[in-house]
Simulated assay, not measured.
Amino acid sequence: MSDTIRPILVINGPNLDMLGTRQPEIYGSDTLADVEALCRRTAADHGVTVDFRQSDSEAEIMGWIKRARGTASGILINPAGFTSTSIAILDSLLIFDGPIIEVHISPLFRRDAFRHLSYVSKAATAKIEGFGIAGYAFAIMRLAELAKLAA
Rank of each mutant, 00 (worst) to 15 (best):
I105Y: 08
H46A: 09
T49Q: 07
F138M: 13
Y136H: 13
E60C: 02
D17T: 10
S73M: 06
T42G: 04
A68Q: 03
G81N: 00
A80C: 02
G81C: 01
P79A: 15
V50T: 14
E60K: 09
T71W: 01
D3T: 12
A123Q: 02
V10W: 11
T125K: 09
A72M: 03
T125M: 07
L146Q: 00
N15Q: 08
G98F: 09
T31K: 10
F109A: 07
V10K: 14
M62K: 11
C39L: 11
V103E: 00
H116D: 09
R6D: 01
S118Y: 15
Q23L: 15
A144L: 04
V48P: 06
L94D: 00
N12P: 14
P99E: 07
L76W: 02
E145V: 09
F131T: 07
T42M: 02
L9G: 11
R6K: 12
T49A: 12
R53L: 00
I26F: 08
M141S: 05
G13E: 14
S86K: 08
T49L: 05
A126D: 13
I105D: 01
E25A: 15
T31L: 11
E25L: 14
K122W: 13
I133H: 05
L32A: 02
G13D: 10
A68E: 01
K127D: 01
L143T: 11
A151D: 00
G13T: 15
V120G: 08
A88F: 06
T83Q: 05
A139K: 04
P79L: 05
R67W: 00
I105R: 09
A43M: 08
L76N: 00
S73P: 03
N78M: 05
P14V: 10
E58M: 12
I128Y: 11
P107K: 15
G98N: 10
P107L: 12
A88T: 13
R53H: 04
N15R: 04
V120W: 08
G98P: 04
R142T: 03
D17V: 03
G98S: 10
L146G: 00
F96H: 00
L76Y: 02
A144S: 06
T83L: 10
N78P: 04
R22G: 04
I8S: 09
L94I: 04
F82K: 04
D17K: 08
W64N: 05
R115S: 07
V50Y: 07
T21L: 10
F52V: 13
M62S: 10
G130S: 13
G130N: 14
F109M: 09
G132P: 00
D45T: 12
S73Y: 05
L90W: 03
G70M: 01
R69W: 02
M141T: 13
R111Q: 13
I26Y: 06
I95W: 07
S106C: 01
A134S: 14
I11D: 01
F131A: 07
P107N: 15
A88V: 08
K122M: 15
L108Y: 14
L149E: 08
T31G: 08
E25I: 14
